[in-house]
Design a protein around this nucleic acid. Sequence first.
DNA 1: CGCCCTTTTGAAGAAAATCAAGGGCAGTGG
DNA 2: CCACTGCCCTTGATTTTCTTCAAAAGGGCG
Lengths: 235, 235
Amino acid sequence: MSLQPFVAKLSASVDLSQSEVSALSALPFIAKTTAQDRNAISKGERPTFLYVVLEGWAGRYDVRPDGSRRITGFLLPGDFCGIHATCYAALDHGITALSTCTVARIDLADFQAVVSTSRSIERAIWQAKLTEEAILRMWLLNSVDAARTVAHLFCEIDARLHAGDSTNKRNFHFPLKQEQIGDAVGITPVHVNRMLATLRRKGLATLVKRTLTIPDVQALRKEASFDPAYLHTRS
Amino acid sequence: MSLQPFVAKLSASVDLSQSEVSALSALPFIAKTTAQDRNAISKGERPTFLYVVLEGWAGRYDVRPDGSRRITGFLLPGDFCGIHATCYAALDHGITALSTCTVARIDLADFQAVVSTSRSIERAIWQAKLTEEAILRMWLLNSVDAARTVAHLFCEIDARLHAGDSTNKRNFHFPLKQEQIGDAVGITPVHVNRMLATLRRKGLATLVKRTLTIPDVQALRKEASFDPAYLHTRS
DNA sequence: CGCCCTTTTGAAGAAAATCAAGGGCAGTGG
DNA sequence: CCACTGCCCTTGATTTTCTTCAAAAGGGCG
């Protein structure tokens, strides 16, 4: 297990020199695996670590006063969280493993030592944070029609997982249950089911047994009005 | 016209020394006033400025493919935007003056020179950005019931404008039209009208002629399940 | 006074939630 | 090997929420 997904993500947004890449790759870390549906990081924790997802999916989970929940973002391999600790009291939401999930814990002091040596890395961190914000804004913008929102979510995840892939077909592991999709788009699981049926009927996307099949990426993107520009990945 | 609201906002989140305060206050800037409903900063602009709202309200406006719009955040006096320019190509959304609005333009190089002299200021900037993110997550979390969402918006704006105020009554200028409230909470203006009527009937809030009256802040907060903790203001 | 913009109110329709009941499938235990 | 059980997924019927369409009422300003 290595930090490779993390390094890859950062160099996808910024040009990194050989020495920057090796400094990042050499960061000491402890990998920890969390079982599906268990908390990877708890709300209120005040970590002195930078957490980096190495394998599997995690999600930011916010809880409503009535107990219902909402996913406000996905952490895919290479994504990180925890920098807030440099200025914040505590994490204001929990992070849950959406599939079996391996997370690296990097000591924040170590990490900042590396960051302080490189303007490029610092910029990559900022950019990651700004992209997160852009995704949140897109979730707000996009919450008009449930079928489209689900389609847009599929497009987002696909674009983030397969940034460089220019082919038009996809077939990949998608570990979310319908209930979790509902938590992410803000609709009930029953309604998710119907929207999935709609997408299936239209031949745009099929989700069976944790496997998502997109026969025509461009068609799905058109349906969802998805334009990957807001993710700011250089292709 | 001075940068006072900006300095006040930063020192509300972080302890600033006398010299840090004066360094910020001494930043050269050009104030520019934008009329209501006009763009303060256009989408796609690649500013070399930090923009700071001095007076009035501005809003981040995202536009959907069908032309309808959504406000994804408010910029109140003291709030800033434009740091994205340090690593991003271009602003991916527009900023509109929601009331007559005076914005200071500070040269980014000047600003960064000051930031680089002070860890505290750097932390304050990060914290502001993280709070923005927390607000976005709250908007997602909170979009269940229209009446509550409107109530929550009132609470958010009030908490941000009157951070230190511990009294329980409010009566302040609220320049948004019902249509803009709708753009912010994601419902039609017609429905905003009905939700306002509901809040009025319950005696929780009255919005007449751009003036918002909250007879009992605690009661409104309870109705909206509003807890200002996520805004991370030290009181 | 008349015009335009915003708010208000009504009625009908669409979208999604809720309530409720089956169905498939994997894992477990007899 | 088969029945049992639990977890999702699926489907139907009903109700609630919000949108859409439409029209009228108030208010500021030339």
